[in-house]
Structure formats: structure tokens, C-alpha cells
Design a binder for these strands. Structure first.
Lengths: 235, 235
DNA sequence: CGATTGAACGAACGCTGTTCGTGACGAACA
DNA sequence: TGTTCGTCACGAACAGCGTTCGTTCAATCG
């Protein structure tokens, strides 16, 4: 049918803007923002840049490196305020919430990347620095603050990952009824003899919205950190 | 070269044990234990059962369903003790550690599955029930216990996921030097002017081994929960 | 003006999950 | 006993993935 589409030399078509690391990451950001991280394949990205997947490997070693660049570029939009010692707790909670919202809403699926590599880019450091300073301002010891930063990163990533998953389950028309309601039913039809505590507490387990549960978690962590000295426990 | 391997009727070869859901999950468990979850593909699994991938779909709807079955079968080995109210904290920490060890050591990569679906199987419920009962024994209110169970599940999954990642990075001969040392170098060569707090706390951030950090985290969470009433905060 | 270099990229490799149509069997029935 | 029927097994294929190889071509340098 279709002619073999004589592979026109790329000189024939209007000059494309030259590829570059920045252009690639920018295009990746656009896709991740609009279609989510799952849609960001090397092929899809190349398509957006009107080229083939092989061309990307000139500027990026592999998919993992692209993801690392992408992650740091994504969190570049997270703003950090100057530390105000009187408001350290609100500032810490607000910053945390901004991080989660970026991972869940701005770039759906981004949390996956945060969990599968150790963020070490410019912007991740900027955020970590601010978190540590806020913890110090709250009176945490050096060892507690150091541990707390790692702990909170883990918490933020995990919450973002979970929230992303929930949104995916709710928006996916295929599994909408399957997954979410299947679990709800599994809880509702539990044998109260074998699982008395779950049965008794059932309704209380899912109370609260995302924001409320997240903030409660942060206060639990902060209060717990201040009440649990790290000194002498990490060798 | 090789003859087209005339597709012998399966009646020719010695009778295979009939396929079944249990046989499939058992084979999957064996692969996951020996080679990790990443190696567990439908093709690899079919190969282990001496059949083709299509045969599996008679007993399992898709990969996700297999994973759900696999996860619950894996945590079936996690034992729960009868609740001893005097020792609730140790029991809770010991149970938590058993869960993490199962996900990290027994079935490398299993934590991935725990994060990408909502465990609702028999054994997950058994563990959740025990955790809730332990929290109640520790004096937590209903609402606090309900929230705490969810919170702790998140923590356990996240820690298991991180530990799995670290082990993979350390054991992978390709990236051994690349990833882990790259991050260490990124921290060491940080600009102390822009990141003063990180630079000052650097060595304290990675102190302690897996077990110590995990237990500290649990105590932080438990103490934080007891110090932060959930009532009135979740609507 | 010719030689060199590096970017672009078509094609392919080996892998993935999943589906479809076919074939063979055991059991039920006439 | 002979035949039909439903269920399971499975070869082949599809569409997609990340990545690599070898070639082509435009721009730069000597």
C-alpha cells in the first residue's frame, strides 16, 4: 500500500532546533505533567521531539539518568521560605505539603522516581537543607535532625506514592469498580470472629481526607522525634 | 539447523502434574525467593512450570492478580504471637521487623508489590489485626489505633522498599561504583555556603545500621502517636 | 577544498504482558 | 460402545518497551 516512505534526509525538512539535554528534559517535563510518568517512555519522548529514540542516547546515558534529571527539574518549582524560628513547625509542614503536592498533582507518578533512586540533585538538596534548618530551629539536636530529615523524606515519598496510586485507581475506568470497591468489600465482609479489632475499628480506619491524614502524620513524626532522643541509638 | 521441533502433543511427554492456582503461586514464590521479584515474569514463571505463558491465564486473570496472590502467600510465613499486654511495644516492634525482613530478605523486591496495591488478603489481615490489637493494648484510642495501623503499614512498606533498593544497588556489579558512590560524592562535595546545615550534619545523616534506624523510627512513631491524639483531627 | 568529527537515526535485538485460535483430552451422554 | 461437548493447554502472534549498532550526513577545522 503505502510507499516505503523514502527516508527523506533530515536536511529536507525544515531545520529542527538542535537537540540538547535541556530540550530533552523540558519535553520530558511537559509529558510527565500532562500525561504522567507512566506515559513517559523513551519512544514517546522522542516522538515529542520529532525524532527517534536512539537520538536521545547522545545526551542521556539511559532511562534512569533521564529520570534523575527529570526529578530534580520537577522539584525545582518547590519554593523554600527563609526560616522563621517562631513558625518552624508550620513552615516545615507547609514545605512538606508542597513537596507532596508537586509529586502527586503536578507530575503524577513522580513519587515512583523518588523511591527508586536517591535524589541528589541541586533542588533536592535545597529542600533537604531547608528541612534540616527548620528542624534545628525547632530545637532538635544534630543527631535527631539528621535522622529526622531522612525519616521525613521517606514519609513524604511514601505518602506521595500512596496518594498517586489512589488517584490512578480512581481515575482508571477499567479498574474503578474492581480494585477500590473490591478492597472495601473485603473489609466489610471480614469475619468478626477472626478479626475482631479490625471489624470494630473498620470505619475509623479511613476517616479523614488526604490533607488531614498527612498533617496528622507530620505532627506524629515531629512530636515523636522531639520525644525520642536519637543520641546513643545510632552507632 | 535444528529441526522445527515437531510440536509433539503434550500427551507424548510424561504426564505433567496438572496446573492449578496453587501450583502457579508456589512456583512464583520459589522464583521470587531465589531470584527476586524482578525476575518473576509470566514467561519465566511459565518456563518453571514447563509450559507457555498463555497457560497461566487460565488460572490467573493477569499479572496484577498473580502478584496479589503472591504477596499474601509470601507474608503467610510471618508469625503473629498472642498479645501480651505487658510486652505490647516489644511485640509490635518484633512483628514489624519480621514483616520487613520477609519483604527484604526472603522475597527481594516484594515491597514493590505492597506499595502498588492495597493488600487485602487473608494474611495481610491477620497481621493488621495483630498490630491493631497491640496498639490497643498499648492504650491507644480507637481512632489513634485505626490511624496508626495505616501509618505503620506505610512506614513498613517504605522502609522495606528503601532497604531493597539499597541492597540492589550494592549487589549490582554494574552500578556498584556508579550509584552509591556517586551519591556519597555528591554529599561530600556540597557547597558549605549554600547548604550549611547539610554540610554540618553530613556524617550524622547515615549513622546507624538498618536495624537501629528502623527501631528508632518505630519508637518515634509510637511515641508520637501516643503524644498526638487523632480525635477531632480526622473528620 | 578535503578530512574529520559528532549528531541523527533506521533497523534490529531481546524482552515484556496479553490475546486468539486451535487442538487434544476426559467426561458425560445416547 | 460411540459420539458429543466443554475445558484446559499452548503455539503463534501483537504491540509495546529500552537499548545498541552501523550508517549517513552536515558542519567544522586544517
Amino acid at each position: 500500500m503505502a510507499a516505503p516512505a523514502a527516508p527523506r534526509s533530515r536536511r529536507d525538512r525544515p531545520a529542527k532546533p538542535a537537540l540538547s539535554r535541556e530540550a530533552i528534559v523540558d519535553a520530558a517535563l511537559a509529558i510527565a505533567r500532562k500525561e504522567g510518568i507512566d506515559a513517559l517512555t523513551m519512544r514517546r519522548l522522542a516522538q515529542a521531539l520529532d525524532t527517534g529514540p536512539a537520538s536521545l542516547y547522545v545526551y542521556v546515558a539511559n532511562r534512569e539518568e533521564l529520570y534523575a534529571l527529570l526529578f530534580d527539574a520537577a522539584v525545582a518549582n518547590v519554593e523554600v521560605e527563609p526560616v522563621d524560628p517562631a513558625r518552624w513547625r508550620e513552615q516545615l509542614k507547609a514545605l512538606s505539603w508542597r513537596v507532596v503536592r508537586t509529586m502527586v498533582e503536578d507530575y503524577p507518578g513522580l513519587a515512583q522516581l523518588a523511591m527508586s533512586h536517591i535524589p541528589s540533585g541541586e533542588n533536592a538538596m535545597r529542600i533537604a537543607e531547608s528541612m534540616l534548618a527548620l528542624l534545628k530551629a525547632g530545637g532538635a539536636s544534630d543527631q535527631t535532625a539528621a535522622y529526622a530529615a531522612d525519616f521525613m523524606s521517606t514519609y513524604l515519598n511514601a505518602i506521595a506514592y500512596e496518594q498517586s496510586m489512589y488517584r490512578r485507581l480512581y481515575s482508571d475506568p477499567d479498574h474503578q469498580q474492581h480494585e477500590v470497591e473490591r478492597v472495601a468489600e473485603a473489609f466489610a465482609t471480614l469475619d468478626p470472629e477472626r478479626f475482631p479489632t479490625i471489624a470494630a475499628l473498620g470505619p475509623a480506619m479511613t476517616r479523614g481526607d488526604e490533607r488531614e491524614r498527612f498533617e496528622l502524620g507530620l505532627d506524629v513524626i515531629i512530636n515523636g522525634l522531639l520525644a525520642t532522643p536519637a543520641e546513643g541509638r545510632l552507632t
